[in-house]
Structures are given as structure tokens and as C-alpha cells.
Design a protein around this nucleic acid. Structure first.
Lengths: 191, 191
DNA sequence: TCGTTTGTCTAGCAGTGCTAGCCTCGACCT
DNA sequence: AGGTCGAGGCTAGCACTGCTAGACAAACGA
């Protein structure tokens, strides 16, 4: 019995080790550097071991993405909590935290919201980390929604921030004017 | 002299043929299916011929992207021209045309605005097609900008639409509510 | 007609994701 | 305690990727 438990624990540890290594490698050298061979070398196992934990490389990327959603949720929640009595300030803090997250961890952000994935978004069986991240957005939008549907407005705000994050990150927008765009967006979208 | 001209003409034709084949293949089967071998087969030349026209696969993707920007510029300009005396209607038409473009040609859109590229965006030496597409946005935003800087506001609107397009396209937003999000965005961002 | 240039092709390199099949080691049962 | 057996790791290999060196042929200028 206890042997079985120890094995499962070791398995879970190695699972986490793989995800952490993939995330680290991606953030350091970009996703194109994350090959099964290099990843296997990092975790000091041979390549096929990865496939006994994950169905394929895509599944590893997805695991990293879900992991990242947990981090994002935490970041956003903290940003909101810093301004408990000022909805507008809270919104601004959350928006800035979101864009900062995308800027600080571009590869992680890419896995979460850009790369093709089969993580279920916006459905009841979404991973809890994902719901938490979206929930943090909803909480900060709610006081400012007026008569509009909160979830729809939240999705719209999220989309706008996502657009800013990705277009800025891929240098498709003028690098200065970054703050001006955010100011404009928040002032006009959620006054 | 004329021989030289004929050769250059043939080269240009083949250049266009390659770009068109890449675009078609990407749109039909996705970018992951666009390999140099399959592309060479499509244009009925051997693989190394591609490399006498383009520095590498990335350059082919970039050429497709620039090509697509020309199409997008045309689409947006037409959408605006359909409502010459109603700025709000023109904006809505352009926004819808943009999202429709992204939905209809997802692979092309991906090459233009998602994939990593070294096309210079937002600088004086951007390709003319790109400037034209952005110009169409500027034209439609201008009458509604009020006191805000037109270019900054245009970038913000574009970002928001881009966010909607990509998150919708990757099924990260609830599929219904699509129109509700667009309504909300336009009503709040550019009333 | 004879070089020379221009262009295309075959063949191959190093690297990718993924898997078949062997082999070792340790947990079990007698 | 010793034999059995299975979980789990490994080596080796497949079919594919982007890209390139070097052979070869066709078309050009003299």
C-alpha cells in the first residue's frame, strides 16, 4: 500500500518537474527551443519518459498554460485587493497587472492565450485555474458594468487587453504610446 | 535585353505563384501543413527553387502576410465607402468587415497579426499595404475621435478588435455573445 | 561552335515528434 | 530465500522538418 503511494508521489513530483522545466526553458529560450530531447535532458530522463506522463508535446504545453493561469489569477486577485474601496483604481491596477504579466512572461502568456490548444475555455468544465483568472476580471468589472451584462463586458475588456498585450509584444504597435493606449481604453470602455 | 526582361518577368510570376500557393495551402490545411516540400510540389518545382526566391520559409510567410494586408486594406476601404455620410455606421461596417476577414481567412490573419515576423509595423518603412490597412482604420476613427489622438485611438480600437478576433478564433470566448461583445465595444469605446 | 553563366535538380545533413521493443530492477508469492 | 513477473526506463529507429552542397543540363554571348 505505502509503496504504491510512494510511487504515485514520485510520479506527481516528476510531473511537476517536467512542467516546471518546460516553462523555464520556454521563458528562457522561447517555445521553439522546447524540444522533447532538450526537455528530457533537463529533467535528466530519457525522451520516452515524457510520453508516459503526457500524451504528447501539446499536452505539456497545455499543462504549462493551466499552471500559468493559476499564477495569473493570483496576480490579478492581489492587484484588485490592493484597492478595496476604489473600483476605478482597482480596474486600472488589474489591467496593468495583466499587461505586465504578459510582458514579463511572454512565452507563458503565449501558451495560455495565443497558441492553439484544446483546453476548454469559457465552459463549466474549464480548469479551476482558468475560472479563477476570469473571476478576478469579473470581480473588478462588476462595480463598473452599469446596465450591461458583466460577463460580456468582462470578455470585451479581456479581449481588448489581450489585443494590446499581443500586438505590443510582437512589436506591431508603436512602443511608446503604450500607456496612452491603456488610458484611452479604460477611460472610454469603463468610465 | 529583352531576354533579361523575359527572365525577370518569369521570375516575378513564379514569385507570385509561390506566395499564392503558400496562402492557399495554409488556408486549406493550416500553416503546419505548409512545408517546403509540399509547397514545392504544389508549384511543380523542386524544393531548392523556393530558396532562390526567398531567404527561408519565414520569408514566404511574411510575403503572404503582406499580400493579405493588401486584401484587408481593400476590404476595409470598401466597407467604409458604403457609408459615406454616417461615421457611426461606417465604423460598425469596418469593424464587422475586419472580424469577418479574420474569421474567413484565419490562416492568413494568423500570418499577418499573430505569428512572429520581422515585417516593420508602425514605422515609416512599413510596406505600403500595411499602411493602407491602418489608414482605412484611421479614416473611420477620425470623425469619432473627439479630443483624443486619432492614431492612438485607432491603435486601441484595432487592438480590441484583434483581441476579439483571436480569442474568438481560438474558441477562448463563448461563441454566442459574439455580437454582444462587438456592440458593447463600439458603443462604449467610440460613442 | 565553344566556353561560360544561369538555373534546376538529386542527395544529404542535422534536427523534430513520437514509438517499438528490449532489459533491468525491485516487489511479490511460494 | 529464491524464483517469477511486471512496471518502468532505455536504446534505437521511423518519418518528417528546414535548409544546402555539389552535380548537371540548358541557354546564352563570343
Amino acid at each position: 500500500m505505502s509503496i504504491q503511494q510512494r510511487r504515485e508521489r514520485e510520479r506527481a513530483d516528476r510531473h511537476r518537474l517536467i512542467v516546471a522545466a518546460a516553462r523555464d526553458l520556454a521563458e528562457t529560450e522561447g517555445w521553439e527551443a522546447v524540444t522533447t530531447r532538450r526537455l528530457a535532458e533537463r529533467v535528466e530522463y530519457s525522451q520516452p519518459v515524457l510520453y508516459s506522463h503526457f500524451k504528447g508535446k501539446d499536452a505539456i504545453v497545455s499543462a504549462v498554460a493551466v499552471d500559468g493561469c493559476g499564477d495569473l489569477a493570483k496576480t490579478l486577485t492581489e492587484a484588485r485587493a490592493a484597492h478595496p474601496d476604489n473600483p476605478a483604481e482597482a480596474l486600472r491596477a488589474v489591467a496593468e497587472a495583466y499587461l505586465d504579466f504578459a510582458k514579463t512572461c511572454p512565452a507563458l502568456y503565449d501558451a495560455m492565450f495565443v497558441q492553439r490548444t484544446n483546453i476548454p475555455f469559457g465552459t463549466p468544465d474549464s480548469p479551476q485555474e482558468l475560472k479563477a483568472a476570469f473571476g478576478a476580471f469579473v470581480a473588478v468589472v462588476k462595480p463598473l458594468a452599469g446596465q450591461d451584462d458583466v460577463e460580456t463586458l468582462t470578455e470585451t475588456l479581456w479581449s481588448a487587453l489581450h489585443g494590446l498585450a499581443t500586438l505590443t509584444g510582437s512589436t506591431r504597435l508603436r512602443p511608446d504610446h503604450h500607456n496612452a493606449r491603456l488610458d484611452l481604453l479604460l477611460r472610454r470602455l469603463l468610465p
